[in-house]
Amino acid sequence: MKDSVEKILHTIKSKSIALKNAAEIFKDLDEKERKEMIDLMKSTSKELADLIKELE
């Protein structure tokens, strides 16, 4: 149990960092890249929400 919670927390941390990194470079992207990035940010946010639910 403890091990699986740790794995979830690890993934939450990784995905949050990825979102932060994406926000940092977002301004420097062209229009096409921004669209791709927004899609990835949305799916990552959804995955994050699902992971947080798993913690409940």
């Binding site: 990784s14 995905k15 960092i17 990825a18 979102l19 990194n21 994406a22 470079i25 992207l29 890249e33 791709e36 990035m37 990835l40 940010m41 799916s43 990552t44």
Partner: peptide
């Protein structure tokens, strides 16, 4: 494995 992280690394 994370697509967003992958994208960021590729961008760099």
């Amino acid at each position: 494995d994370d697509k967003l992280s992958q994208k960021i690394i590729l961008k760099n």
